[in-house]
């Protein structure tokens, strides 16, 4: 039973997780080195709750009780009593490794340390820690972890008890978990990139046009977006970075090699919906 959850990083993901947790009666210790970001995060949660109360999705008593569970922290050792600590910091290997080294030293051995990195191997993020068996990965999906799914990625030496506790936390915040070994891209990212890569190859060899492929994938496979539409939404630069990361971490396995066109597009400034130009053209760049 998770009673105290630490979250490191009060950005979009950290804020979303904190909100979910306090709504499910878990005490949150939200840490950020930057107090302004921390304040902004709290204001965001309060604002979301006010709106939920106005829309009668939440009672004011529930809102107050949940906010009581939200504690802010600016010192890492203050997370020492947490059952699980989730890092939600910037996607930078050096920053994450350094953080895990500190968390490993500052917290009780029973604390589970979780990374949310979508592209790095858990074994790599936790490599600087002494007790690597307590390090796991959580893959959240969608804007601000909106998807119901969470992939739990145990480290190579993580015991079953820690995996069970991690799964229990995911259940407590109302999500569904699957257990996946520590492989590049796990299941969801890896599968998404196979769809992207195949669609790109089909377009490159002129089997079908991008619009046709999107149409076929939506209508015949039932996916909400075609692969070219999805890459435009995710950001073609992000697709390139994740695709190359999966390929590199798979030791150059040709099954995961991203087609060269994707890099050419990024270099040409075609990064998708956010700048108005990708596989499709958009009137209003985001």
């Amino acid at each position: 039973m998770v009673k105290h959850l630490g979250i490191v990083g009060a950005g979009q993901l950290g804020t979303a997780l904190a909100k979910l947790a306090i709504l499910n009666n878990i005490e949150i210790h939200l840490y950020d080195i930057n107090e302004t970001i921390l304040r902004r995060s709290i204001e965001q949660i309060k604002s979301d709750f006010r709106q939920a109360v106005q829309q009668k999705n939440l009672s004011s008593e529930q809102s107050l009780a949940a906010l009581e569970l939200l504690k802010t922290r600016t010192s890492l050792p203050d997370l020492g009593h947490c059952d699980i600590i989730i890092e939600a910091v910037v996607e930078d290997a050096r920053v994450k490794k350094d953080l895990f080294k500190h968390l490993d030293a500052d917290n009780k051995i029973a604390t589970i340390l979780a990374t949310t990195s979508p592209s790095m191997l858990v074994s790599s993020v936790g490599s600087a820690a002494r007790y690597t068996e307590r390090i796991i990965g959580f893959h959240f999906f969608g804007q601000a972890a909106s998807s119901e799914l969470v992939e739990i990625i145990p480290n190579i030496n993580t015991p079953a008890g820690i995996i069970n506790d991690a799964a229990a936390l995911i259940r407590m915040i109302g999500k569904t978990s699957v257990i996946v070994k520590d492989i590049p891209g796990a299941i969801v990212e890896r599968t998404s990139h196979i769809i992207y890569n195949e669609a790109l190859c089909l377009s490159i060899d002129q089997t079908a046009g991008e619009g046709q492929i999107d149409n076929l994938v939506r209508q015949n496979m039932g996916l909400p977006l075609g692969p070219f539409q999805k890459m435009d939404v995710v950001g073609i630069d992000t697709v390139l970075a994740t695709g190359e990361s999966i390929y590199d971490q798979s030791n150059g396995d040709p099954r995961f090699r991203p087609p060269g066109i994707i890099r050419q597009m990024v270099e040409a400034g075609l990064t998708g919906q956010k700048n108005g130009k990708g596989f499709y053209r958009y009137g209003n760049p985001q």
Binding site: F141, L149, E151, V178, I187, V188, T191, I195, L223
Partner: peptide
């Protein structure tokens, strides 16, 4: 778990 992941995570 593979099927659950692609059903919920990808929408297949």
């Amino acid at each position: 778990d593979i099927d659950k992941a692609v059903q919920i995570g990808i929408g297949l």
